[in-house]
């Protein structure tokens, strides 16, 4: 068990290193460099070489790429992503609270989505190919297919404008406590929740259908084991284990994928800052976002692997 855990931890570290390399190289090979933030093409073409060299020196662009990569890597290990090009603010100061806020929003969605998705998946699988399953599956396909900005807008029209129960736009501040943010965010949570339940419910339904159709379950039924025990104590664990990786990937994608919803509701999360960074061409901020998002995927994958190791004896033995 310990060696398996250590092996996965080592694999995660290697993946993170590869990701950091990829992010650095990707931003290196893009046309132009950080100077393009403030200079246009004809400005560059007519600038005296000495002045250009001075500006490159100020931005650290005069150093060879490997040297800059090592400095970048060293910074990343200490969560130092450098400073913004325009205002010279430490990138971590810009990213930290929006990341926390996106995690709060994503976390709230997951906390609500997992039990609801379990319920939906179990009900749908138990009454497989019956009316209940058809209704739930159809609703899930619609919920998963409709873009989140459409769902968000409809929810705003219904529950903020026509029937003013919840805020239409988030006026809470970036550094407000988590509870204050959540209290202001029922509609963003609901918007993401609809798609999340639809997706996770579908994933679990497939696992449950397979589990309920196994010979093992058939034998349990023949021996008179109550249905609730079969579903919750035997079929559900068997269905959840293969779904864990998919759920982990979904959880990671959730945090980086709620950008649009954050913009619809003016939620002070990564979405707002990412948009600002892209439009301002703040390369270091974009690097930080890319790395943190990728890091979350690795982290959630690792957690899923560890959970599978803990739950599944066959995986441990292999």
């Amino acid at each position: 068990m310990l060696s398996a855990v250590l092996r996965r931890l080592a694999l995660s570290l290697v993946t993170l290193l590869m990701l950091a390399t990829y992010v650095f190289v990707a931003t290196e090979i893009l046309p132009g460099d950080a100077l393009d933030v403030s200079l246009s093409a004809d400005e560059l073409s007519m600038m005296p070489p000495a002045r250009l060299a001075q500006m490159k020196r100020e931005l650290g662009l005069d150093r060879p790429a490997p040297e800059r990569f090592l400095a970048f890597l060293g910074g990343v290990t200490q969560l130092d992503f450098g400073r913004t090009l325009i205002s010279k603010t430490p990138v971590i100061d810009i990213v930290a609270f929006p990341l926390r806020n996106s995690l709060i929003l994503g976390g709230a969605v997951l906390v609500a989505a997992i039990p609801l998705a379990l319920f939906v998946g179990i009900v749908s699988a138990y009454w497989f190919r019956r009316a209940t399953d058809t209704i739930i599956s159809s609703a899930a396909i619609i919920g998963y297919s409709v873009p989140e900005f459409v769902i968000g807008t409809v929810l705003v029209i219904l529950f903020a404008v026509a029937w003013p129960l919840f805020p239409a736009t988030i006026t809470a501040n970036t550094k407000d406590p988590a509870l204050a943010l959540l209290a202001a965010s029922p509609l963003p949570v609901a918007t993401i929740l609809i798609g999340s339940i639809a997706y996770l419910g579908r994933v679990l339904r497939v696992g449950m259908v397979e589990a309920l159709a196994t010979d093992f379950v058939e034998r349990l039924r023949l021996t008179g084991v109550p249905e609730w025990r079969i579903v919750f104590l035997h079929a559900l664990p068997a269905a959840v284990i293969p779904s864990l990786t998919a759920m982990a990937l979904y959880a990671a994608a959730l945090v980086s994928g709620i950008v649009v919803v954050e913009l619809v509701f003016s939620y002070p999360g990564l979405g707002q800052e990412l948009l600002r960074a892209v439009t301002r061409r703040e390369v270091h901020v974009i690097q930080a976002f890319a790395l943190l998002s990728a890091g979350l995927v690795v982290l959630f994958n690792l957690l899923a692997d560890l959970a599978i190791l803990a739950l599944d004896a066959r995986t441990r033995q292999s």
Partner: peptide
């Protein structure tokens, strides 16, 4: 209270319609 909604007119107008 002044809330900056540059480039987010729809969010601002939704806030107005919702009474925020």
């Amino acid at each position: 209270e002044c809330h900056n909604r540059e480039g987010q007119q729809e969010a601002a107008l939704n806030g107005l319609r919702a009474g925020q």
